[in-house]
Structures are given as structure tokens and as C-alpha cells.
Simulated assay, not measured.
Amino acid sequence: MTAAPRSRRERPAKPALTREGIVAAAVAILRAEGLRKVTMRRLAQELDTGPASLYVYVRNTDELHAAVLDELLGTVGPAPAEGDWRERLEKVLTAYTEMLFAHPSLARSALTARPSGPNYLRLVETLLGLLDAGGVPREQAAWGVDLLLQHATATAAEHAGEESPDEWQAVTRALREASAETHPHIAAGAGALLSGTPEARLSWAFRALLGGIERTAVPGAGADPAAGSH
């Protein structure tokens, strides 16, 4: 016996579209299928709607990816209460890097994505607060946050793909077998070039950058803007 067709009025109404719901669905697709699948068409299919209806809430795929990044920035916890300001800042940056490590495709996109949501603002505010606690001048702190996040993002993006053991072995062999006659500095420092764990190198990089940010003045900082140039 054939079932009678079901009236549209008997079907449960679809939940209204919201930007928050769209971003949440995009994050779910990212976790399950990777960022490449986070498209307007795939998202519309997931939400049982047409792609055109999504553009009311998100202008384009780039804005969608930036919103996804901002959503995941919410998983980066606040600065720990223990430790000096440098240690606390390093832990926040490490947590940010680890979040990107967990989502390799997003790590590459984060190099050009421009998040502007509440979680991004909270992260920047946290970093600026820690730099202020360390007595870093405001202009240097402002430029320094950009530099620190760039390095963390680039590090995650560099290791986002599946690293080929053959390629790494080729690099290692090239450095270790470099001729002292043609490449004396490489030959003398091959061990140092290849030393250290990724975690140790990331920690050192953050500390090295912080040292530079503390000591390097921003060009023109403190100058009277009304004075103009001569």
C-alpha cells in the first residue's frame, strides 16, 4: 500500500538561518571534511537551503573562512594566572599554534584570513595586556602582536601538510654532506641547523621575538604628528 503524500504543513519548519548557525555548520564541516569543503554550496546543502540565501549573512567564502577561524579562536583559553608575563604570553601563543595544528587546512588559510570577531579581539587584547604588564611600549606592543601571530600562523601552516620522510631526509643529507670548501658555514653548523624539537624551536622563536619587540622602537613612535616631515 502506497503511503499518502505528506503535506508541507505537516513537516517541521526549518530553523531560521542566522550567522551564528551558518558559522557553526561551517565549523562542523571543517572538522569532518576539511576547509576545502567549506563552500557556500556545501554549506547550503548542509542547511537545506539555497546558496543565495547564505549571502545575506556572509558576503563570500573568504569571509566565511575568517568567521570559522574566529570561532575556533574561542578554544584558545585565557592567559594562565601562574608565571611571569613572558611565560604566560608564550603559553597563549602556543595554544593558538596548537589549535591551528589541529586543523591543517585552516592553518594555511589563516595566513591570509582576516578574522574580526569577538574571539580575535579577545586574543589580541590578551596579548596586548601581557605585553603591557611587561612594560613594552604601546607602539612596540601593537606591532609586536602582529609579528608574534604571523610567526605562530606560519609555523602551523608550514607543518600543516603530511611531511614526506623522503623530502626531510634529502634536506638532512644535503646539510650534513655540504662541502666545507664551498659551504663552510653550513658544514660547521649542520648539527645546530638540524637540532632541537619543534616544541623547543617554537618556544625559542617566541622568546627571541619578544626580546626584539622589547628593544626595537617603532619608527616615528612618540613623534609629534603635527610637526610633519622636513
Rank of each mutant, 00 (worst) to 15 (best):
A4C: 05
P5Q: 06
A13Q: 15
A16W: 04
I22L: 10
I29H: 02
L30V: 05
L30N: 01
R31H: 14
V38N: 02
R41V: 06
L43E: 02
G50P: 00
N60E: 03
D62L: 00
G74V: 09
V76G: 02
P80N: 03
E90F: 08
K91C: 01
L93Q: 03
L93V: 10
M99T: 11
L100V: 03
S105A: 14
Y120D: 10
R122D: 10
V124E: 12
V124N: 06
E125R: 12
L131Y: 00
L131T: 01
D132M: 07
A133G: 07
G135K: 10
P137L: 07
P137N: 06
G144N: 01
L148N: 01
L149C: 05
L149V: 08
Q150L: 14
Q150K: 10
E158L: 14
E163V: 15
W168Y: 09
Q169L: 11
Q169E: 13
A170G: 12
T172H: 13
R173E: 13
A174E: 11
E181V: 15
A187D: 05
A187R: 12
A192Q: 12
L193H: 04
L193R: 02
T197Y: 06
T197F: 08
P198N: 03
R201P: 01
S203A: 14
W204A: 13
A205E: 06
F206L: 11
F206T: 00
A223P: 03
S229G: 03
